[in-house]
Design a protein around this nucleic acid. Structure first.
Lengths: 342, 342
DNA sequence: ACTGGCACTCAGCGTTCACGAGTGCCAGCG
DNA sequence: CGCTGGCACTCGTGAACGCTGAGTGCCAGT
């Protein structure tokens, strides 16, 4: 049975009331708080249909109705507009972010900002290495057979690794290698590096072959193979905002899942090419069982239309979707603009 | 009234049983589980004294006794020996830490290891900048009026900041500045830098004065004034191990406190000159009100006897002190040795 | 197609009651 | 003098019970 407009309206009302009060909503309360111009009995009939279709359910007989994951999905897709941010929120973003001194600082501030605005758990992925370009490569001699490789990207991220050299290598040789790799790789996307590194090693002068090979393999390992993308998180305390009401059983599995960087990266890092509209995953739709009682709102961010990382929030399925989506989008844009300025 | 040996023994038994069962322990259970060679009635008399002295208390009349913070303190100070680690634990440490590739990796592994071994919330401070020495300073030109300053310390930590230059500065000038600051600051403790930077700026050639001044102020700001020591945390899920039983009211304030880096730094970073024996702060003894329901076991760590940072765990006052203290000490030592190898 | 009425269900809440673990106290014993 | 067994008392816990009220489904009537 297709849902007519009034049934949709009823669903919307249920979602809104339930999110606001976190109590199952009954037919009488519904007609009182929304001007539906029909009687409770009529609403009850609509509810019966909505329940049959799986959009709402009753916790027990003789209780009101509660949206299901499917109900939230319909609500998000068809029944809600993204709330424009309030002036206060815009100001909060400005105030919070102004004066950030480096990338670490930007990420930290962003994640706390998100947590505070949405009152939920916020996660921000550091700008991904593979999607960034090399600004500069620095080699620093530590001993005769070891040197430090420092990679500086155009997103301001810095990575360092120790390179074990096959044999004693002079400072001059190191300087030459520095010149070489900067000439070859400077300005290139990290994702392009593998081939470049290969040819570079092949074309190096004989006496630099061996050390260049060591350097090359560390480079590849660091930048490409090892995808230990870093993330920052804040606001875990928000999980307990309403006691434990929002999480059936315990919040423990949720906390555990949130400590797994791998899980978070999957959650936040899998962003499509768009920065414009946040992606919403509701309850069941999550691939991680431990997060089935939560919803995730995530977005890519980056300068302009490019995506260098993801950010988002994790909260109970019973969340204020329009508000959260709007906030995530606004923050993602703001951070993108910030990165573009550098 | 001074406590005789048997009363101390009773206190120890109460602490051990309560930690094991997390239920108030009564006189009968006590004589059954420990061979005290006296009757429950006698134990009751001892308990009355212990209660009068503030070492234990009754949650309600007709319940067993529970240690107070003061009781735990006495237990830790006089009644417990640090448990030697089991072979399994030693192996776990090895297995967990082997193959760490860089400082970030070491810190991450350490914090997870601690959380897993103690089943509590673990916190590790990154090697403090002020207690490290400069290995190398790198300057990288970004545009004609901006350059990136990268500081590499002997503990493997890397910090970077953008320096706004007062006017166009050539690559040659930058190279000269790089040479200067490395000659002056290389190998020095960061805590020594302020005076050195000052004289360096004063003695610079006239044409380098202005850019050196900019560089100097950023250096000071980054390394000394700004003490944004970083920390890593893991195991927050362990707070909910026993439901919320361990935390009166809610774990929310605890989670909130743990998200405040400032709080954690105070907690973990304030370590005395010794790496040998972990410091224990029990309940009330904590300066932060929100952490009054927790105990903190912390230790300094670093190569040899020097302290470059702190680490520790936070858990309910009802914790296995001997085991936790032993684990914290062992991990701190291991990490110290690891740093010494570099 | 909507509405008012009605019987039915059941979670939540307060009351009551019995149980039992644990205590404090005391008289007696070695 | 310190320890013990006995005893009366306290009080938190959990089960049983009944009431109330919100909410429902259904049906006959407009």
């Amino acid at each position: 049975m297709p849902l007519d407009d009034r049934k949709l309206e009823v669903l919307r009302a249920i979602v809104e009331d339930y999110v606001a009060t976190r109590e199952p909503v009954g037919s009488r309360a519904l007609v009182e708080r929304h001007k539906l111009n029909v009687s409770p009995a009529t609403v009850r009939n609509d509810m019966a249909v909505l329940e049959e279709e799986g959009y709402i359910r009753q916790p027990h007989t003789s209780a009101g109705r509660v949206p299901t994951d499917r109900g939230y999905r319909l609500f998000v897709d068809r029944l809600s507009k993204i709330k424009p941010l309030s002036a206060a929120e815009r100001r909060a973003i400005e105030r919070f972010m102004v004066g950030a001194v480096d990338l670490d600082d930007v990420v930290h501030r962003t994640v706390r900002l998100l947590a505070q605005l949405t009152q939920q758990v916020a996660v921000v992925q550091y700008p991904s290495l593979t999607r960034s370009a090399v600004r500069h490569l620095e080699l620093v001699s530590i001993s005769t057979t070891r040197m430090l490789l420092v990679v500086i990207t155009d997103t301001g991220r810095v990575e360092q690794r120790v390179v074990e050299l096959p044999g004693p290598t002079s400072d001059d040789d190191i300087a030459e290698m520095r010149r070489l790799i900067n000439a070859q790789l400077g300005g290139r996307l990290l994702s392009e590096t593998p081939q470049l590194v290969q040819t570079m090693v092949d074309e190096a002068e004989p006496n630099l072959r061996a050390p260049m090979a060591s350097l090359g393999s560390v480079l590849l390992e660091t930048l490409v193979e090892r995808h230990d993308e870093r993330i920052a998180m804040a606001g875990t305390a928000n999980l307990t905002r309403n006691g434990l009401v929002d999480f059936p059983g315990s919040i423990r599995p949720v906390l555990e899942a949130l400590e797994e960087e791998v899980v978070l990266l999957k959650l936040i890092g899998e962003v499509e090419g768009e920065n414009a509209t946040p992606r919403v995953r509701i309850g069941d739709e999550n691939e991680f069982v431990d997060l089935r009682s939560t919803s995730v709102v995530s977005s890519g961010y980056g300068p302009g239309d490019t995506v260098v990382g993801g950010l988002g929030v994790v909260g109970p399925t019973r969340m204020d979707y329009p508000g959260t989506i709007a906030t995530v989008r606004a923050v993602a844009r703001y951070v993108g603009d910030l990165l573009a300025q550098n």
